[in-house]
Design a protein around this nucleic acid. Structure first.
Lengths: 262, 262
DNA sequence: AACCAAGTTTCAAATAATGAAACTGAACAT
DNA sequence: ATGTTCAGTTTCATTATTTGAAACTTGGTT
């Protein structure tokens, strides 16, 4: 009856193992995993076996290492395509980066983190998965703040509770109170700035993407560096960003999937 | 003791549900899923609940639909990055498409299917997830044939047994016997052609990526259309393709992950 | 108000997950 | 050769999770 701490479902545990492996950022040996894992050898072993047989992990027999598997890439493809935001936003992201001549990010909120779902880079035409799939902190990025500012209070509280408030730069807001003041300003203004809060020299202007009902779908930002421009200059792009964000919201809202064709 | 047919592990079942949902290619309602699912209502319900809580599925409360979730995108990012092939191959894929002025595909074998892990398009600079993550048949694509031709017999037999041999075009090989002859020719030649076997008007030349020991890592192709060129003309790119494939193989082979930096 | 369909909860029985310990086998040292 | 260590694998009685029929709730429809 009473929660005993060990009852969170087999699926959840298996996925935690996936996260662990993905977190390494490189192929790992079983023993390395075991060190970090709360599970006994036999249990972890079986998880890894099952996940490998399922294609969620790939085992390299030469090096005896495990890495996230191809089935994930297949599933993620479906996730991206099916998402109500990313495919719709794509042409707008393209157009915006073209017009602004700067890097454009499209992000969604994934729990308490920011997940970049698309990116268009100004110089190099684009960066692939390296961009899509990356996560970042919500409390000190333009897109992060633009999204959480418009969350209902209950959810916002949950998200804030999970922020690390690590001081990345001198400009990082490192307390809930300071962040709350900033979020209030963002709500009043309608969009967010990143004043080198996450990375020195990197600034951006970020706009939320909201449904008519005010639900947060994502955010979009135009990013540059202090070496190239200023926040004031970036603000020139505001009308475009706002227009793009609103267009995306409208399309995402009205959108129904076409009846499955072939 | 005896296999009872119903014992394949909870994790496997949950992943089957994921596949089912991903297969729809659009957000689905619970009832739709239930129709196609072998599980009773309560069981499927719990799976969907758990997967949603885990972020593997996303539930749209407005439309009451489920779709693959953001956690997948995060995990797939790790899969792509960690893969011993894709990140290494990227610059080579870039260079090859630049030099050839044609579309370049990078693929791996995922079970009996071809999974495209990267793509560079001649005209538009690139296509995102829409390309990476896509799957195709192994028996009638250039990259597919280039890979399976170099599989050890035992594995090849298993893969061939899983091919549909659907006739996509007049040129599709539709029997195992015919395919076996073609694979023999590919082994002799060292690379593969696609003579409009999958899509009318689409031709390509595909080269396997093999370790020194002969293990299949993937394949790479230069693709064009009969409207623009001929197979003979495409063959001019062979030296480049071969060089790229060999360079990738060499790098992938020697590659150790850098000691985890920050 | 009665009906229906979609979604949610319950609970005893059936099944699968658990993990300590024993085992295997390779790599290396003696 | 022989022993030692360590990484990886298997076993099996115990434990706790999953299962699914059925009952229930909810919201929309006739």
């Amino acid at each position: 009856m009473a929660e005993h701490g060990s009852g969170e479902g087999t699926v959840a545990k298996a996925l935690a193992v996936m996260d662990e492996i993905a977190g390494f950022g490189r192929p790992v040996r079983f023993a390395e995993l075991l060190d970090r894992s709360p599970y006994p050898k036999a249990t972890l072993y079986r998880f890894v076996q099952v996940l490998t047989k399922q294609g969620m992990l790939h085992f390299d027999p030469d090096r005896q290492t495990y890495a996230p598997g191809l089935r994930l890439v297949r599933l993620a493809h479906a996730a991206w395509q099916t998402s109500a935001l990313a495919p719709i936003a794509r042409p707008h992201v393209d157009a915006l980066s073209e017009a602004a001549g700067e890097t454009v990010h499209l992000a969604q909120l994934d729990g308490a983190q920011v997940l970049y779902v698309d990116k268009r880079n100004a110089r190099h035409p684009i960066e692939m998965y390296s961009a899509a799939g990356k996560v970042g902190p919500a409390y000190c990025t333009g897109v992060g703040k633009a999204m959480i500012a418009f969350l209902p209070e209950e959810e916002l509280a949950r998200v804030i509770a999970q922020q690390s408030f690590h001081r990345f730069t001198d400009h990082t807001y490192t307390t809930e109170a300071a962040l709350r003041v900033e979020l209030q300003a963002i709500r009043a203004r309608g969009y967010a700035y990143d004043r080198e809060e996450h990375e020195p020299g990197i600034i951006c202007i970020a706009h939320p993407i909201l449904t008519r009902a005010g639900r947060v779908l994502g955010a979009m930002s135009v990013t540059s560096s202090t070496a190239r421009t200023t926040l004031e200059a970036l603000e020139d792009h505001l009308p475009r960003i706002r227009a793009a964000a609103e267009a995306i919201a409208a399309e995402a809202q009205d959108w129904r999937f076409p009846a499955a064709a072939e």
